[in-house]
Design a protein around this nucleic acid. Structure first.
Length: 848
RNA sequence: GCCCGGGUGGCGGAAUGGCAGACGCAACAGACUUAAAAUCUGUUAUCCGUUAGGGUGUGCGGGUUCGAGUCCCGCCCCGGGUACCA
């Protein structure tokens, strides 16, 4: 008699229904409905398949999309594939399988896995960055950048990774090894494509203000852009007359400069080096040029450098200070030259101590304890204080000023005398945009024999990738595309000039920089996207993805978007209005008493905890990143098979706040599975009644609508689910279930567990999908109660709980409280000093 | 070092400055069952106490407040980012 919760049958039935009826197709330009564009970070379709981290963000956005549809929004929720990338290429190098074959296979697998979770995507808008119909427009955008002068070639010291046979962006190198694979990276000059992201530094920084993004992510972008304000000051080299410009953020400490440092690569080094020092200097420069980033990171404890024999004249006091070269000064930042103020800069202080250079204190520290040491030159002070040993006599009276003020005053003073000027610098560098790989977008670029560069005509795009059998880079470091001789050679039809096609390809970021725009118009063959569609849908209302994209992808995409804005192709300054980062899902892992990690297959669970299968040693459980080596990777397919997609979705939302890092626990899936099973039983086996609800039932129903609605809006899915559990616990049982409660409950649960709810909805006699049913509204009047329990505290300690009318005012509450025997006992005849009264909540009686 | 997060039962986690531990997991006890699974009911921060009841408790130390997990000051620990950026 009683039906089983057969989730597999229910889920495939409704997934087919949605697909067949195109239930979630997003229509452009719907009149009278607000639009809502929700973007998921599209995945790289790896061979390993979907990870439990993917459905976390996807479920969160899916709940919001389903909710917004019920709220009458025209929702756009698309999915696609970021499919260029290294793993497919490496697999190709090893096996000879063409990356397009691997990619297609992986995409099919990913699509199947994602569809099994029942997300309400508009699959008609699916995109794939490796599809020539897509990358045609990636190439077109590059052409636009090139025409605007934002793409250029430069011989730059790049991060060359011999193991990967390619250069990497600064962002892709972590502590001297590659982000992917962890291979060593060395510096090497190469001719490369660069994009002028630095031209947009200020706007990328400023426009962060208007974005509804997590403050931490904004801060990371600010730090990455790294704006600093200070001054450029000219020093003249004594006896040679050459001028060296230094950049400093502390022009107010100019009087404390006791030496100057040039980067080893600084162009003036040869000119100013004294003959006696030449050998030493040239040896040091040679040594520095061989240092990779890795070496420099490892050696950052000790400072090195050599004296050039030259002296510079400090323009503010005519002091002659020695000029050194040292690799702690970088040629790529500021002017490649600094004035060193050891008394008020910690790095300069270290260097001065190491080489016995004088330290001159010019700021008397505010901190009296620190002052004597700093005055004696034994310590460094970077805080506020009074200027001393400075140019008070020169009209510069900045005694007692805070650092910020004295900086401003000094800059004005320098400018008035023509010695220096205010300057702004950024850490952000131009974006190294080329890779020596096969599996990426070819540049629409031809190098002609006369040395000029020709863009492939827009009408000839896409410039498709040539077929290759061997995907290895050429030994010389030339990219694999150089092997496609026919493809590479070119003769200009107009001039007859011969040329070679660019053999570098674009980095993986290229395709992901603008994919949110292609979803708006995925089949357009005439343009990347129609402008009226862009105007209708943009900006993205909500973008959900992992925090690992905090700087790279999100900064690059914002940059391209701003370029497209300047060119008039998009109508918003920023692409992503609201951003939410999902927290990583960790696996369970075990370690033994020595702290060694134990893979899951060697762990045995016994009555009193986990033990090592072989040694029998007790193991400690702890959360750690899921990894192949720990064998603690959870496969979504297995979870779906055992508990169903609705349970998988619900569990990932119930684990905790979306942003939090949280460990996976399969037992927890069982908990939500039980909840869904009970929901199914309540709505199928329990008698549905048309009798009106009583006061208590109405209150719980409306409180649940209120809580779930508010929690979905704020993406607090875990507490929304807990409220629905409370509802279920109250309503399930033998008593008949009021129809209104049943239907409302189904609609509230539908965004979370859509398959089950569609099934229950149709079982209650509805013939249509519930996807567009109006979202339940709550009524405040049902939330009111006649009497509430008021806690009465005496000196902050709870002494009694008294039922009082909900609308009782302070006087009534006080009277009722003071009439209570327990309260009186607690007061014990002492004097009542004060009574704090919080209507509807508590009373606190202060006695003495 | 610097910049962000975070620290609450056995575990995941709840708490507009107002009864800390909602909801779930696990555990324990009971019902049903020949038995198990499934299901249902109950207990479950901790200490003292047979009970009634009382004490303690949100990383540590101070402070503000009638009242602090929540606000302020000073630390400790964990996670993430970043690093000679003048």
């Amino acid at each position: 008699m009683e039906k089983e919760y057969n989730f597999s049958a229910i889920e495939s039935k409704w997934q087919e229904y949605w697909e067949k009826n195109k239930t979630f197709k997003a229509e452009d330009f719907v009149e009278g409905k607000p639009k809502y564009y929700v973007l998921d970070m599209f995945p790289y379709p790896s061979g390993a398949g979907l990870h439990v981290g993917h459905p976390e963000g996807y479920t969160a956005t899916d709940i919001l999309c389903r909710y917004k549809r019920m709220r009458g929004f025209n929702v756009l929720h698309p999915m696609g594939w970021d499919a260029f990338g290294l793993p497919a290429e490496q697999y190709a190098v090893e096996t000879g399988t063409h990356p397009s074959v691997t990619t297609e296979r992986n995409i099919n697998n990913f699509r199947k896995q994602i569809k099994a979770l029942g997300f309400s995507y508009d699959w008609d808008r699916e995109i794939n960055t490796t599809d020539p119909k897509y990358y045609k427009w990636t190439q077109w955008i590059f052409s636009q950048l090139h025409k605007k002068g934002l793409a250029y070639m430069a011989e730059v010291p790049v991060n060359w990774c011999p193991a990967l046979g390619t250069v990497l962006a600064n962002e892709e190198v972590i502590n001297g090894v590659s982000e992917r694979g962890g291979h060593p990276v060395v510096r090497r000059p190469m001719r490369q494509w660069m994009l002028k992201i630095t031209e947009y530094a200020e706007r990328l920084l400023e426009d962060l203000e208007e974005l509804d993004w997590p403050e931490g992510i904004k801060e990371m972008q600010r730090n990455w852009i790294g704006k600093s304000t200070g001054a450029e000051v000219d020093f003249v080299i004594d006896g040679i007359g050459e001028k060296v410009t230094v950049y400093t953020t502390r022009p107010d400490t100019l009087f404390g400069a006791t030496y100057m440092v040039l980067a080893p690569e600084h162009p003036l080094v040869d000119k100013i080096t004294a003959p006696a020092q030449a050998a030493q200097v040239s040896a040091y420069r040679e040594e520095a040029s061989h240092k990779s980033d890795l070496d420099r990171t490892e050696l950052n404890t000790e400072k090195t450098g050599v004296f050039t024999g030259a002296y510079a004249v400090n323009p503010v006091n005519n002091d002659k200070i020695p000029v050194w070269i040292a690799d702690y000064v970088l040629i790529s930042y500021g002017t490649g030259a600094i004035m060193a103020v050891p008394s008020h800069d910690t790095r300069d202080f270290e260097f001065a101590k190491q080489f016995d250079i004088p330290v001159k204190c010019i700021i008397m520290p505010d901190d009296e304890l620190a002052a004597p040491e700093v005055l004696a030159g034994n310590a460094c002070w970077t805080g506020n204080g009074k200027m001393i040993n400075s140019a008070n006599h020169d009209g510069l009276d900045i005694n007692g000023m805070e650092v910020a003020d004295s900086k401003r005053v000094t800059i004005e003073w320098l400018e008035a005398r023509g010695i220096g000027k205010g300057a702004v610098k950024y850490k952000l560098r131009d974006w190294l945009f080329s890779r020596q790989r096969y599996w990426g977008e070819p540049f629409p670029i031809i190098h002609l024999e006369d040395g000029s560069i020709k863009l492939v005509d827009d009408n000839d795009l896409p410039l498709t990738l040539p077929e290759l059998d061997d995907f290895k880079p050429v030994a010389s470091g030339e990219p694999p595309l150089a092997k496609a001789a026919d493809w590479v050679t070119y003769t200009d039809p107009e001039t007859g000039l011969k040329g070679r096609r660019e053999t570098n390809t674009m980095p993986q970021w290229a395709g992901s920089c603008w994919y949110y725009l292609r979803y708006l118009d995925p089949d357009n063959n005439q343009a990347a996207f129609a402008q009226d569609k862009e105007k209708y849908w943009m900006p993205v209302d909500l973008y959900v993805g992992g925090a690992e994209h905090a700087v790279l992808h999100l900064l690059y995409a914002r940059f391209w978007h701003k370029v497209l804005y300047d060119l008039g192709f998009v109508s918003t300054k920023e692409p992503f209005r609201r951003l939410v980062n999902q927290g990583m899902i960790l696996g369970i892992s075990y370690k033994d008493s020595r702290g060694a990690l134990v893979p899951m297959d060697l762990v045995e669970h016994t009555g009193d905890g986990a033990v090592h299968k072989q040694t029998g040693e007790k193991l400690v459980e702890f959360p750690a990143k899921m990894s192949k080596s720990l064998k603690n990777v959870v496969n979504p397919d297995d979870v779906i098979k055992e508990y169903g997609a609705d349970s998988m979705r619900l569990y990932e939302m119930f684990m905790g706040p979306l942003e939090a890092v949280k460990p996976w626990n399969t037992k927890g899936v069982e908990g939500v599975y039980r909840f869904l099973k009970r929901s199914f039983r309540m709505l199928t086996a329990q008698q549905i009644s048309d009798a009106p609800m009583n006061e208590v039932q109405l209150r719980l129903l409306h409180a649940t609508i209120k809580k779930v609605t508010e929690d979905v809006e704020s993406m607090s899915f875990n507490t929304a689910i807990s409220q629905m559990m409370i509802f279920l616990n109250e309503f399930s049982g033998d008593k008949p279930l009021p129809r209104e409660a049943a239907e409302t409950y189904i609609l509230l649960l539908a965004p979370f567990a859509p398959h089950l709810c569609e099934e229950l909805w149709s079982a209650l006699g509805h013939s249509d999908t519930l996807a567009y049913e109006p979202w339940p509204e709550y009524n405040e009047k049902y939330l009111k109660v006649a009497e509430v329990e008021i806690m009465v505290q005496v000196l902050g300690k709870a002494k009694a709980r008294i039922m009082m009318p909900a609308d009782a005012d302070e006087n009534v509450m006080k009277e009722l409280a003071l009439a209570n025997p327990d309260v009186n006992a607690a007061i014990g005849g002492k004097t009542v000093r004060k009574i704090i009264c919080v209507p509807g909540r508590l009373i606190n009686i202060v006695i003495s």
